[in-house]
Design a protein around this nucleic acid. Structure first.
Lengths: 310, 310
DNA sequence: TTGTGCTTTTCATTTGATCAAAATGCACTA
DNA sequence: TAGTGCATTTTGATCAAATGAAAAGCACAA
């Protein structure tokens, strides 16, 4: 072959998915801790918090410097350069192609475009990616309890939350597990942690409109339920709640319409009331409210979908 | 290169892991359905039952013919040739190297020889296998909820059931979930299925000695708890019970001593009593007994281990 | 001490070709 | 109508080499 092109390395191999993910989580962390402009940022601390080495953290911080969120101090190190409380994190950061594909698959599965049983070979041309990518994605679905390998050939997505039946089962399960968490003998509310959850809710209530579209509300909602379970001190309860959150994420990614603002506000207030009861130590009241909260949610019907849906 | 050797394919590539697994499950099925000598065997039916195509089923049946369990009929097709109720399935069938390695890893992890955090590169030389094999094994652990990928490099085994703390949490979780299953509004006992579980218990009671060593008792025990959950009609409860079974399997594979016979017999009888109550529709009594059964199990201390254990 | 900026080392992904195994289709039979 | 036996097609496992990314180490600064 003749080399008419400069056979240099392909330029601009962007940041790795891990780096992008870390950058996003760093922003979320800055917001959750309500760190102000000028605060110094420590790479080792972040590395510890996220369970990785400094290498990908440094790369993520570099991205944030490029975006103007951070800036180098006079001597060494970084500090926060701008207020990010108002901006949308997803708009600021590129999302990795892998992440996009993951969401796209989830959406197509939730809407039924993608069948329940799929083969790797079928997905490769469909999404125009190599087998390695397909497997990585499927493994991720599997790790989140959303898919599993079949014996022999192929993968199967879990019976998702389509149809009233599975939906009911999910809420029944959540009531069982989450209420049990509140009743756990070793229940111990960590004020620090719950306070953070509470602040996130108050942020939503201050500007509910901003949360209807993105997954901001989803994140806060999920962390509320997970944090309550965490107080039980029982890791299995936490895992169960987390998996239910994953399932709901997949289901809701198939619903295109936005949640009505009033709905979000009401849920927020219910969450805060439950937090009040928990922090006051009135577990029975908290449990009653949580049960009621979940039951209401299970009766909520999603807004009508696009016309061609069944 | 000169070809001094006959460059034929390596001989005797044994049966695939799937084939061996299917052969084992076919034997278990014959025993569970108590099919007698002479019964004809239908490959498509087995393929349907196990969710695979006829190809691996045929290979598995060939293995069983070789072992003398099945034999060809005069014209076409196969029939059962010998009574297998007394034999040990594990002795009859070879176990695939992959399966052996899986068990070995599980045992070494349960006993603490293998650290909680591992890298693929560390396991390759340790077990003398390629990276592909290591990944397949780790993926299997992950699928069973026994391990997960870490961000960046490496894998982490789940906090296993070592230490009183995790052990207590596990039983607490099981009580919550399994008792909820009995209380489920849609609870519906399938007599066919439960009868099969019952027969398996009676088989154990007839010859308890035979079950102390192998995993026969473990299988029956696990299927009892899983079957009860299945009657709830709630897939999430079933999944939760199944995952707890996986965890216990890993934990118990680290315990070398055998369970005392009396212990197995007592559990068997308790299981049967619970089945009686369930089939009689007395769910409250069933739940009370189940709760008591689990609580007792949680208080049971394993027999002393080999001396050098902590 | 704790953090930074760099280098070195280790680890895992990617890629493409080859091959084993599972799925599928078809002719034929009980 | 289901089942068998065999042939064909499809799927995914496997391997080594090259590349890219994360972890680990070190000197130095606040």
């Amino acid at each position: 072959m003749n080399q008419t092109m400069i056979d240099e390395h392909e330029p601009a191999e962007g940041p790795s998915p891990l780096q992008i993910d870390l950058a996003r989580r760093i922003l979320e962390r800055i917001r959750d801790f309500e760190l102000g402009v000028g605060t110094r940022i420590s790479a080792p601390e972040l590395a510890r918090a996220f369970g990785v080495s400094r290498s990908p953290i440094s790369a993520a911080l570099d991205m944030l410097v490029e975006k103007g969120v951070l800036q180098p101090t006079e001597k060494r190190g970084l500090r926060i350069a701008s207020d990010i409380s108002g901006i949308d994190i997803h708009d600021l950061l590129p999302s990795s192609p892998i992440e996009d594909l993951y969401r796209r698959m989830m959406r197509e599965r939730a809407s039924g475009e993608l069948p329940q049983d799929v083969s790797e070979a079928e997905l490769m041309p469909r999404y125009g990616v190599s087998r390695g990518i397909v497997r990585k994605l499927l493994m991720r679905f599997a790790a989140e309890g959303l898919a599993q390998r079949l014996p022999g050939h192929g993968w199967r997505f879990v019976d998702s939350l389509v149809g009233d039946q599975a939906y009911r089962e999910s809420y029944e399960f959540r009531i069982v597990v989450e209420c049990a968490a509140l009743r756990a003998p070793a229940f111990n509310a960590d004020p620090e942690h719950l306070g953070q959850v509470r602040r996130a809710h108050e942020r939503i209530l201050r500007d509910p409109q901003a949360s209807t579209g993105g997954d901001e509300w989803f994140r806060v909602n999920a962390s509320f339920h997970e944090s309550l379970a965490a107080c039980s001190g029982n890791r299995f309860l936490v895992d169960a709640v987390r998996q239910q959150n994953n399932l709901r994420r997949m289901h809701e990614s198939g619903v295109f319409l936005e949640l009505p603002v009033e709905r979000i506000e009401q849920s927020c207030r219910e969450h805060l009331a439950i937090l009040d009861a928990v922090e006051a130590g009135d577990m029975e009241w908290a449990e009653a409210m949580l049960r009621q909260h979940l039951r209401q949610a299970s009766e909520f019907r999603w807004p009508p979908r696009t016309p061609e849906d069944s």
